[in-house]
């Protein structure tokens, strides 16, 4: 990647005038102020969240919400875990299953689109392309009815399968773009060696597609971890609630224990925060991949 420091011209020309230097200095100070101000704005609500989650209920209701006084306790985190423990587990199951389903199905599909010929394949490809622009909010009513009719209502499968379906188009199209650049001789050589389709997929296509699959996996995991609308619509019982649904139910219950709710929010973010700490580059790569989903290409 070509690197460039915007505010730092490599060599200041010797003849530059004092006034220009001053203007540069002022713009640097201004941008420093703006940048720092935004950091404060970005962190403040999170500070409020964490501080609130560490307080006793009495202190939360009476003490200054921005000043750490009135004692600190971790007991909210224990209470919260007993409330959203099942949801945490459900979210892990759903996220892992959605990723697995998308990866296992999208790789063969992309291979089929790259290697297959004919009208049927082209139709599938065009429909995958069109699907990038279909938002889940626009189909949620019919997804609810379909889930009901397939007897998937109130089951984790009722969350997993539709979520995977909505990630499929993006995964397939990214993989198609990637596999198109692979010389077809590679496939043909393996076919000549008598490799079956499954063997070819297992020992050539899957290993080759690992780099895009990493980004796809991160993106799919993030969006299924965060998704609220679909699980809200396809499950009603607390036994199948995933984290966003469980958080919403806590928030809207009467006589809510606010510090415990805030602690639950922190619990729900911990896996993502860990991912950010150990794999910042992968996390951001996954986010950026997802942005192509809304661009219709």
């Amino acid at each position: 990647m070509a690197s460039i420091a915007v505010e730092e011209p490599s060599a200041e020309p010797a003849y530059c005038r004092r006034s220009r230097l001053q203007a540069l200095k002022i713009s640097r100070v201004l941008s420093g102020v703006l940048g720092t101000a935004w950091a404060v704005i970005a962190v403040a609500p999170l500070y409020f969240l964490v501080l609130g989650s560490l307080r006793g209920e009495g202190a939360y209701l009476t003490a200054n919400p921005w000043w750490p006084s009135g004692g600190v306790t971790l007991s909210n985190y224990r209470v919260a875990l007993s409330g959203v423990g099942t949801a945490l587990l459900n979210s892990v199951i759903v996220t892992v299953s959605v990723c697995a389903l998308v990866i296992v199905l999208s790789v063969p599909a992309a291979y089929a689109i790259v290697r297959g010929r004919g009208r049927g394949i082209r139709l599938c490809y065009v429909l995958f392309l069109a699907g990038l622009a279909i938002p889940i909010e626009g189909t949620i009513v019919s997804v609810f009815i379909i889930v009901l009719h397939l007897h998937l209502y109130n089951s984790l499968a009722g969350i997993i399968v539709p979520t995977a379906a909505f990630s499929m188009a993006l995964a397939v199209l990214i993989l198609v773009a990637f596999l198109r650049d692979v010389p077809s001789e590679l496939y043909e050589a393996m076919e000549l060696d008598g490799a079956g389709r499954m063997q070819l997929l297992r020992s050539l296509v899957f290993p080759m597609a690992r780099p895009p699959l990493l980004g796809i996996g991160v993106f799919v995991a993030l969006s299924s971890w965060n998704s609220l609308l679909l699980p809200l619509v396809t499950t009603t019982s607390n036994a199948q609630a995933v984290l966003p649904v469980a958080l919403l139910r806590l928030e809207s219950s009467n006589g809510a224990d606010y510090p415990a709710i805030l602690a639950s929010v922190v619990w729900s973010a911990i896996p993502i925060i860990v991912l950010y700490l150990v794999g910042r580059r992968q996390l951001i790569g996954g986010l950026v991949i997802g942005s192509s989903s809304n661009l219709g290409r």
């Binding site: 199905l105 999208s106 063969p108 599909a109 291979y111 089929a112 689109i113 290697r115 297959g116 010929r117 004919g118 049927g120 394949i121 599938c124 429909l127 995958f128 699907g131 279909i134 189909t139 997804v143 379909i146 399968v161 539709p162 995977a164 379906a165 909505f166 499929m168 188009a169 397939v172 389709r197 997929l201």
Partner: peptide
Amino acid sequence: PGLLVLPAFAIYGVFV
């Protein structure tokens, strides 16, 4: 090879 598109397209075709 074209048939391998079907599992992915089946759930995509139904739910999207």
